[in-house]
Design a protein around this nucleic acid. Structure first.
Lengths: 195, 195
DNA sequence: CAACATACGGAGGGTGGCTCCGTTTTCCAA
DNA sequence: TTGGAAAACGGAGCCACCCTCCGTATGTTG
């Protein structure tokens, strides 16, 4: 994936690769501690790198987030495939997939915000990622709808956005123990059929 | 309400009142155009007022938002009372109230964000406002639950947060025509009983 | 119309995003 | 091995924004 958009014949310089890796590690740590809205300069400094270098690697906050999520994409694909193979009940499968998505969307504090933006703006580095997961959601959803486990008239996009919304609320409702659970249940009742 | 927390005997200076009114008008306009996350300095400048004056009137963005919402509080109270009197079906009443809340929460772009924060942090100027509406939601909800129109095990707080979440998503899903509707339906299905 | 309280203005300090360009490092070919 | 072109780096610097502080101006009251 490194240098995917570069058409040049020469492979990237080693110091570049090294810096990129290091920045990603530091960013992962920093975002885990302070959320994705925290200072990018702080990350650069913590990585012992100039601001210029940082922005050359990741031109925007979203680009950095996209790069970090890339690493977790594999996990999600694995879970998706595991659900597909192990869970024959399409309704349960959809529920499991939404759980996985929800977990993914709360990997960092404040993550739902840029994800929501990316789900509508095509120009974001995160847009492609979101689009992929929306499609996957659509697949699970269609299967469940075909089997009568999910209401018709709902689209994958709606469910994806709902997951983001619930994850967004969860970030605030942490103080309250039971709200996240209640909200998940409410959402599930929303898409599932009533038997 | 003006000067509610001031215990002084003397009434506020006229220029202060004038500035406050003017700032509120300008802020209303500016937030309507650019959302509640836009620059406060811009509002001060647009109002022809120094930064100091601005912050003396509204020490924080949240304080300004709270003041702006204060004006709309009357509307909501009127709607609440109208629903209580005119709608005898408690389930429909709850639905109407949630619609009203949803409209309120989307008065400005980006409003759900500070509202969510206020719903959990007591120290916010918005906290009291949110708490009041949560209580009202609880009242409508309890009535509906008593009549079997809403599922048990849900709390007003959960519904309030759900409304915020849906409003939050709506801000992004605008490009898409049907998503808001789909999400509202999904949420309603979530709290209503199935008959 | 003092003189006192109150409010105003805007300079200025701090933070953070992002750019630009002189310097350094890497790499490859001779 | 080495010369030099290409690629990256570093951080000074600019801009936008938040917010505070204090000298100045303006109401207010006796």
């Amino acid at each position: 994936m490194t240098g995917s958009t570069e058409a040049s014949g020469r492979r990237p310089r080693t110091d570049k690769q090294r810096n990129r890796m290091h920045l990603l590690q530091v960013a992962e740590q920093h975002f885990s501690e302070h959320g994705v809205a925290s200072s990018l300069e702080a990350i650069a400094k913590r990585a012992g790198v100039g601001a210029g270098t940082f922005y050359r690697h990741f031109p925007s906050r979203e680009a950095l987030i996209a790069a970090l999520l890339q690493a977790r994409a594999d996990d999600l694909v694995v879970r998706r495939d595991a659900i597909r193979q192990q869970e024959r009940d399409t309704t349960a499968a959809l529920a499991l997939w939404l759980d996985a998505l929800s977990e993914w969307a709360t990997a960092f504090d404040g993550l739902p915000e840029p994800l929501r933006a990316a789900a509508t703006e095509d120009s974001s580095p995160l847009a492609l990622t979101c689009q992929g997961y929306i499609t996957t959601t659509d697949e699970f959803l269609h299967a469940a709808q075909r089997d009568g486990g999910a209401r018709p008239g709902i689209r994958g996009r709606d469910l994806f956005l709902s997951v983001l919304a619930m994850s967004w609320v969860r970030g605030a409702a942490m103080a309250d123990e039971s709200s996240p659970q209640a909200l998940s249940a409410l959402m599930r009742t929303g898409w599932a059929t009533s038997h």
